[in-house]
Amino acid sequence: MEALALLQDVFDILLGFGLLWLAWLALFSLDLFRSIVSFISFGLLMAIIWVRLDAPDVALAEAAIGAGLTGALFLAAFAKLQPASVNGKGSSINPQKQSSRKQLLRWLPALIMLWIASGLTIAILALPPHATGLTSEVTSNLTASGVSNPVTAVLLNFRGYDTLLEIVVLLLALLAVWSIGSSVPSIESEPGPVLDTLSRLLVPILIMVSAYLLWVGAHAPGGAFQAGAVLGAAGVLLVLSGWKLYPGLEGFPLRLVLTAGSITFVVIAILTMLVSGTFMQFPPAQASILILILEMVATLSIGVTLAALFIGSPPTDIKKL
């Protein structure tokens, strides 16, 4: 027992330092591509740490979104930035400008950071080593929530408000991305045989994993966000291998799927208000089925929104309207 505890401590310390080292590489590595790859590894290490901290739900979300989709977004943006930085004006560092003033400008923030870090450290260490938080409230009301996974219960029942707003934030981000638009065309290349075969094999599996995560979220780690992220990853893979949405689906059907999550959420919230008198208070008897419906629609919306965020520009059909 003793040796196992020691081994776990060593593992934790190695993970912690590894994480800080990867963060340093991601932020200060001279090669930008290397930075992004370090950031993706950082996300994977982070997922392991979530498991160490008994947060498997967060680990699933981090592995799918933090490491997967965010990394894909950065790599796509990096590829689109390349032509600009190759054409001369890439780096504007003038050696003469690196004067003592610039040196001071580097040291000053470093000192301020040390000051903030020590202040935060004192604050964290001053916290009591034991705190119950809201665990007892959640566990005592878990039977009324309709699901047995406490995190899903918080996300979709107790703090359903947050989740509703979160889905709206996703939609808003997509609207903003579509409005700003980027005239840099996305790089279209013929997918190689590896990517082609891989996506043919992986996409059905990803869709199944997504459905499994959605279903299992009621009583075990998983849920709408993790399932949506996996679905989004399947979409990204399809886009990368040259797949295009059928032209007939680009207009209204696409927008309906994108907004379905928010709409269903609001409709259910208002219906429950008419029944129970409080906005978004699920009656315990129907909570289970309501949460399942919400999660199914939300998964679809989240997945499609994430894939659309990766593409970055609206389908041509919408642009013409």
């Binding site: 901290l53 008994d54 739900d57 809201l134 665990t135 959640v138 406490p150 995190v151 996300l155 703090r159």
Partner: peptide, 8 residues
């Protein structure tokens, strides 16, 4: 059992 609210 960790507090599920911060996880969410």
């Amino acid at each position: 059992i960790p507090d599920p609210v911060p996880h969410a």
